[in-house]
Design a protein around this nucleic acid. Structure first.
Lengths: 201, 201
DNA sequence: CAGCAGCTATGATCTAGATTAACATATCAT
DNA sequence: ATGATATGTTAATCTAGATCATAGCTGCTG
């Protein structure tokens, strides 16, 4: 789905990863969010007709579609459902805020560390990660475009993290070797994700 | 209102400016949004109990409070009102997305230009700006904290903009001397703001 | 109307991260 | 297997913007 489209349905990611992004001149791209199974990546289209960004899959993915019509009917008849969906869009915005803090005020190292903490917890919450091991099916260029960094610098920071025995990252699998330390570097506070409490230490 | 608070009411800004921000270690601050009269700067608190950021006024301000209780009652009984408020939070998120693009992929000059375009149009929409002249009651340090720049660099870019006869900025009043050119530099597309159509050229 | 505090302005220096350019390693299609 | 194309890695160089240091404003308080 592209910037400028006027979709008539929302989708729900059933498997695989997706991302939202915007393009600027000279090939500049900003990835706005990563999406994993269980996410409704374009709920906003229900109330904001034309897309102000694009949506793409990053892997093979399975997607369910629900028409705006039926969603509107549902939310009009069941305010509780409307509230739940509304809340989801508010958590989405909370993640945007955290990313803004990262891009404005965190170093490259802190930014990458923070993103890894975020992705791990989100994956864990839907049962796709455990033992500090999770899939990470994105390229280093994708990470750069998400964090406002060049692919070269992303690579260097990853090497540095490996050097510090913080993580390993091979064949699209991230292993967090020292969760406590990674949290500390990132100044990561998971409360913005609004996940059910679990062992996060 | 502070990060971590659990407010029992939402507010509506009647006059003056406010901003939302987050703090990091070593005094780093990221301003997340500016708010002008007419904005409900903490609507998210209706569905997300604890604040993940702080809210402060930037000027003298008048504020109306509406209890969560009455808002919940209102939205449960009138799905149309819920939809309108929900939509407002979605536009809020669209502005976050645009700021993320700025911080990740725009130069300091482009970022400042973009912010000026955005603020001017938002003020114009509520009748607080015309003839390319609007109030801007924030310090250069505030602009820096909003855009991920140092106050020194903000100052230098402002000088550059004055040098190009793009703007004047004195005693908290911004005058856009060359709107077309400012738009062009910023790669600004106003559609994300979802304002009623007006003369924007 | 002096004096202080918060801004704005400007120069000098430094640095995190960008850019460019190889080259190496996967992954994939035939 | 074999080339083709997307990734990852590393080094050398460059630069936008940070940091540090002053000084000049502006406006407020006593």
């Amino acid at each position: 789905m592209r910037d400028g489209d006027r979709p008539s349905q929302c989708c729900l990611l059933l498997s695989g990863w997706a991302c939202r992004y915007k393009l600027l001149s000279e090939g500049r791209r900003q990835i706005l969010s990563f999406h994993i199974p269980g996410d409704p990546p374009d709920l906003q289209s229900l109330h904001i007709q034309t897309m102000d960004h694009s949506l793409a899959t990053l892997t093979e993915a399975k997607v369910a579609f629900i028409s705006h019509e039926s969603l509107r009917d549902l939310t009009a008849r069941f305010p509780g459902i409307a509230a739940i969906l509304w809340r989801d869009t508010l958590v989405d915005a909370a993640v945007f805020r955290e990313w803004m803090v990262g891009m404005g005020r965190r170093s490259a190292f802190e930014r990458i560390a923070h993103l890894f903490c975020e992705l791990y917890l989100k994956l864990q919450a839907v049962g796709l990660a455990e033992n500090y091991r999770c899939p990470l099916p994105v390229t280093q260029a994708d990470l750069g475009d998400a964090l406002g960094l060049s692919n070269v610098h992303v690579n260097r920071v990853l090497q540095e993290m490996r050097g510090k025995s913080l993580i390993t990252l091979r064949s699209h699998t991230l292993v967090i070797e020292d969760w406590r330390e990674l949290l500390r570097f990132a100044e990561f506070d998971p409360s913005y994700l609004r996940l059910k409490k679990r062992a996060m230490a």
